[in-house]
Design a protein around this nucleic acid. Structure first.
Lengths: 147, 147
DNA sequence: TCCCATTATATCGTATTACGATATATATGC
DNA sequence: GCATATATATCGTAATACGATATAATGGGA
């Protein structure tokens, strides 16, 4: 049987895997364009969302932002610098632990986040089923969306 | 009722939206690290997958790559240039339409793609349910994964 | 109490890359 | 055949994540 490819190999459904990534990219692309139209960078919108959407139990520090955004600590420093320069967040040294810097949205940041989030939720409702179907195909699982 | 916020506004579940984006970032991050460990850029792996996973009906041209990757045509030119320089794909002028350039994987590219795709499928199987649950929460739908 | 390891944030130079503007080649419709 | 559309290519620019490194604050044990 030396002529056979490895068993696992021939079982890979490249079309399905590619399809799933494609759907993700489409969603991310939508986000980029919506953000740009609103005058903000896509990643910066996501950062606002990450800060606002943090569980109550977690403090919105620079480190928490880094973890949420899956970037390095110092990249989060720069990111929050950009957010503050645009007037969407404010930084404040924590009193409890003076190493920490707490981030919170300004009213302007809140408004922007709200508007964009509405668009995102709408897009997700329409793109969600396609995403889910593509994911199901990629892992060979049947997935059902109820309401 | 002027004191009320807009109805839609208060209904936004920021935690759920943020959670979904977080799960996506985690998955993308996994891909970046897996790719890096395999000696390839995450985006370049995705490009290989996009080329290989194209429906039979579509030709693997530079333009098709651009659409699959959701980038501009000239960015796809540069991307395929990088892929070729690394020896993972080859370009060939199309005979049918000499404007087009057809892309196909080299054996080396195929091997790399196969190895990484196996990892990705495995990760998707484990991360998929979390992703789906987060998506469901974001759009307020109950979703069931069967087998 | 003092020291040192740890944690949190910050700065700077570098490398990568997507993009806009632009160019060239080929195909197609009238 | 010629104008227009399509496909790929080139180049300069801007943005940004990262590694290396620095500073500040905390906390635990001798």
């Amino acid at each position: 049987m030396g002529w056979m490819k490895k068993r696992t190999a021939r079982q890979i459904d490249y079309q399905a895997l590619a399809g799933f990534r494609y759907e993700i990219r489409r969603y991310l692309r939508f986000g980029q364009q919506a953000a740009r139209a609103a005058g903000i960078d896509a990643q910066q919108y996501q950062a606002l969302l990450a800060i606002k959407g943090l569980p109550r139990s977690e403090k919105a520090t620079v480190g928490a932002l880094a973890e949420q955004m899956q970037i390095e600590h110092h990249s989060a420093v720069e990111l929050s610098g950009r957010l503050e320069r645009h007037g969407w967040i404010r930084r404040a040294r924590s009193r409890a632990d003076r190493r920490e810097v707490l981030l919170h949205l300004t009213p302007r940041g809140e408004r922007l986040l709200e508007n964009l989030s509405l668009l995102h939720r709408r897009e997700l409702r329409s793109a969600g089923p396609r995403l889910i179907e593509a994911l199901g195909a990629a892992i060979h699982r049947r997935i059902v969306v109820a309401d």
